Simulated assay, not measured.
Amino acid sequence: MALSACSDTSSGGRMQNDALHQAAAQNNVARIGQLLTKTSSLDARDSSGATALMIATRANHIQAARALIEAGADVNAKDHIQDSPYLYAGARGHLEILQMTLQHGADLNSTNRYGGTALIPAAERGHVETVKTLIAAGVNVDHVNNLGWTALLEAIMLGNGDTRYQHIVELLIKAGANVNLADRDGVTPLAHAQARGYTAIVNSLLAAGAT
Rank of each mutant, 00 (worst) to 15 (best):
L3M: 06
C6I: 03
C6F: 05
S7W: 15
D8I: 15
D8F: 10
G12I: 03
M15H: 07
M15E: 14
D18H: 14
L20C: 14
A23C: 02
A24P: 11
A25I: 07
N28Y: 05
N28T: 09
I32N: 04
T37M: 10
T39Q: 03
S41V: 06
L42K: 07
S47C: 00
G49I: 13
A52P: 14
T57F: 08
R58T: 09
A59D: 10
I62N: 12
A65Q: 05
A65I: 11
E70T: 06
A71E: 15
G72H: 00
A73H: 04
N76I: 06
N76K: 06
D79T: 06
H80C: 05
I81T: 14
D83T: 07
S84K: 12
L87H: 07
Y88K: 14
G93M: 08
G93H: 05
G93D: 02
H94Y: 09
L98P: 01
Q99M: 07
Q99F: 01
A106V: 12
N112Q: 09
R113F: 13
G116L: 01
T117Y: 05
A118G: 10
A118Y: 04
L119K: 07
L119T: 02
I120P: 02
P121C: 09
P121V: 01
A122N: 10
E124T: 15
R125Q: 10
V128F: 00
L134C: 07
I135S: 11
A137L: 00
V139Y: 02
V141E: 05
D142V: 06
D142R: 09
N145L: 11
G148Q: 14
A151W: 04
A151I: 01
L153T: 11
L153I: 13
A155F: 07
I156F: 11
M157L: 12
N160H: 13
D162M: 05
Y165I: 00
Y165D: 01
Q166S: 07
H167N: 09
H167S: 14
E170P: 01
E170G: 09
E170C: 05
E170K: 15
L172R: 02
N178P: 10
A182I: 10
R184C: 05
V187H: 06
T188F: 02
L190E: 07
L190G: 04
H192F: 04
H192P: 02
R196I: 00
R196W: 10
G197Q: 13
T199E: 12
A200V: 13
L206Y: 03
T211W: 04
T211H: 12
